[in-house]
């Protein structure tokens, strides 16, 4: 329980601390990513969303088998827009890796089924 409160506290403090600047540029400067956004309001929403989503995605990457030391660097390389697009969808977005033997068998079964239907 204590741990949980501590976590929430840390998360809240981080949010407040980072709210002013999340662009990786430097403290004190505004980043090109923010200036480039078509709509400032949308950029702001994405920025806030990414703020919360980055640590979550890093954790999810670990759940999906990525070593902790890699997970953070992988999230760091993503833009706010990319993070916002990824949040909550790591399990459902296409993860391309074809083709294992099992999948080939599935394809063949699929072809047979479709051939039979036609």
């Amino acid at each position: 329980m204590k741990n949980r409160i501590l976590h929430i506290l840390i998360a809240a403090l981080t949010l407040i601390g980072l709210a002013a600047f999340t662009a990786p540029a430097r403290a004190g400067t505004i980043g090109a990513e923010q200036v480039a956004a078509q709509s400032q309001a949308q950029a702001e929403r994405e920025r806030i969303k990414a703020l919360v989503a980055r640590p979550e995605i890093a954790k999810e990457l670990q759940t999906l088998g990525v070593p902790p030391e890699n997970a953070q660097a992988r999230v760091d390389a993503m833009t706010d827009t990319e993070v916002a697009a990824l949040a909550g969808k790591l399990d459902s977005l296409p993860a391309a890796g074809a083709l294992s033997d099992f999948q080939w068998i599935m394809i063949i079964i699929g072809v047979v089924i479709i051939a039979l239907l036609i």
């Binding site: 999906l64 990525v66 070593p67 990319e82 697009a85 990824l86 790591l90 993860a95 890796g97």
Partner: peptide, 23 residues
């Protein structure tokens, strides 16, 4: 593979394919 591959999903996401070259 250490930058884009997701072992449990047996594949790589488009976002990570775009993010990796930046590194």
């Amino acid at each position: 593979a250490g930058e884009v591959y997701l072992p449990e999903r047996h594949g790589s996401l488009q976002v990570e394919m775009l993010a990796s070259p930046r590194r």
